[in-house]
Design a protein around this nucleic acid. Structure first.
Length: 443
RNA sequence: GUGGGUAUGGCGUAGUUGGUUAACGCGUCAGUUUGUGGCACUGAAGACCGUGGGUUCGAAUCCCACUAUCCACCCCA
């Protein structure tokens, strides 16, 4: 069997065996964002290319070598979004939402595309959950934004992430720092590794993060950001730390954190994991006080974060976190013979329509035994077989698959109500027995 | 973009001095007497051993290329 073709490189199918994990994570993240006052924003999967050139930055790796850019049939340059913030800001400015009461808080779940070489936790199409908050320069909102991420991660049962924060200052003080760094490293350029020689021009802060031993030694004595940021930025950063302390969120200041997207200012942060290989950032974000104006809006401070859902789920799997399971089949109604089988079909249809019960019947023309095996396989909580006898006597034997016990129900008036009640009662009874067993086992 | 590892039925694997019908577990399907699951047993279907070349009388097994995948660098969520 030769496949016609396969999924494109760096893409992933989420199969039924895993999709429930995604549903769970998306649900938790959305619910958590909502109780922080965020509302969902959905923006297009592709945008005009210039949006990302402007927002993310012409000189960034993301824009320079990783974007999926193409001309559409109208000769417009289109780009599949490589991140979520630019589109969100564009949309809010374009629709005038930032003229409303502040702060404006939105969240989104979106696919993102970057043409990279795939590896653990890095795909060409990946998914981000993100939040963005507009209108406040108060350091408390920095802490609150971090708290949103923290709450989501905590509620998902992820405990062993580290939070690292830093301030990269405003454009003015960052420029000073960059110059100082450049001067420092330029004097020692010969000793730097090849990649760092390149970074010297492009982004000297990256050198601070190099894994090469010599570079590390040189970096150790390099100028520190926090010595170069202006008084306002320093005060803001102190405010963020104070608010995080007040919120009881543990963090470490890491002066080497650099964001690869140009729009960031002041606060930047990352939640890191040691369990998923070298692509360790599960969630990252920060402030971008200049971006709204850059997009043609009025000057408005803002901040947000993105969370990589593939990485998040990877972390959860590696840590044995539990995902909310999908509900199993409530009842399987098997049948034998044509007449009974159309009656079974009618019954499950009504159970679904009138009672919202998850019901199945035979669609394969299988033997009774095989039908029972199927009921067991799909984890049906109850089963029943409809045949000539049942139709004649108007009785249905309903079996509780967990206990193996059966109960005969009269198929006359109010049968479906009785059936639904019976199932609810039995399930409650099963649950009580489980609790009892648990109780005894713990004594 | 740069390196290294891997590539056998749906899944996980076995299979080296290259030699008849490629093995095992799980899964799937059917059956173990007449209308009822989970266990066990029996049987069946299902792989041209990633693709294309080459070496050889003969290759899943050796060589080359390509593709995919994994890991790391880079970058980042």
């Amino acid at each position: 069997m030769a496949l016609l073709t396969s999924a494109p490189r760096g893409t992933q199918d989420v199969l039924p065996a895993d999709s429930y994990k995604w549903q769970y994570v998306e649900k938790v993240a959305s619910e958590e964002a909502k109780i922080f006052g965020y509302r969902e924003l959905r923006t297009p999967t592709f945008e005009h290319t210039e949006l990302f050139h402007r927002a993310v930055g012409d000189t960034t790796d993301v824009v320079q070598k990783e974007m999926y850019t193409f001309k559409d049939k109208g000769d417009r340059s289109i780009t599949l979004k490589p991140e979520g913030t630019a589109g969100a800001v564009r949309s809010l400015v374009e629709n005038g939402l930032l003229n409303d009461t502040l702060p404006v808080k939105v969240f989104y779940i979106t696919p993102c595309f970057r043409y990279e070489k795939p590896q653990a936790g890095r795909l060409r199409e990946f998914h981000q959950f993100g939040v963005e908050a507009f209108g406040s320069a108060n350091p408390v909102i920095d802490a609150e934004t971090i708290q949103v991420a923290h709450s989501i991660l905590t509620r998902l049962g992820i405990r062993n992430l580290s939070l690292e924060i830093n301030s990269i200052g405003c454009p003015t003080c960052r420029a000073k720092y960059h110059q100082a760094l450049y001067d420092y490293f330029a004097q020692r350029k010969d000793q730097l590794c090849d990649t760092c020689k390149g970074r010297l021009q492009k982004n000297p802060m990256r050198i601070l993060d190099c894994k090469n031993e010599t570079c590390k030694e040189i970096a150790a004595a390099a100028p520190k950001v926090l010595d170069y940021i202006c008084d306002d930025c320093r005060a803001h950063f102190e405010g963020v730390k104070k608010a995080l302390d007040a919120a009881g969120i543990a963090y470490a200041v890491n002066p080497t954190i650099v964001r690869g997207l140009d729009y960031y200012t002041r606060t930047v942060f990352e939640f890191l994991s040691n369990d998923i290989g070298s692509q360790s950032a599960v969630c990252a974000g920060g402030r971008y006080d200049g971006l709204v104006e850059e997009m043609g809006g009025k000057p408005l401070p803002a901040l947000g974060f993105g969370m990589g859902l593939e990485r998040l789920i990877l972390v959860m799997e590696r840590n044995g976190c539990e995902f909310e399971q999908p509900a199993p089949c409530d009842i399987y109604i098997g049948s034998m013979g044509e007449k009974a089988s159309s009656e079974a079909f009618r019954l499950v249809s009504r159970l679904r329509r009138d009672f919202g019960i998850y019901a199945e019947c035979d669609l394969m023309g299988r033997s009774v035994k095989a039908q029972m095996k199927y009921a067991n396989k799909i984890g049906a909580r109850f089963s029943a077989i409809l045949g000539e006898n049942e139709l004649e006597q108007q009785k249905l034997v309903v079996k509780n698959m967990a206990s193996g016990e059966s109960r005969e129900l009269d198929m006359g008036e109010g049968f479906l109500e009785k059936l639904a009640d019976h199932m609810a009662y039995e399930q409650l009874y099963n649950a009580c027995e489980d609790v009892e067993k648990l109780f005894h086992s713990q004594q």
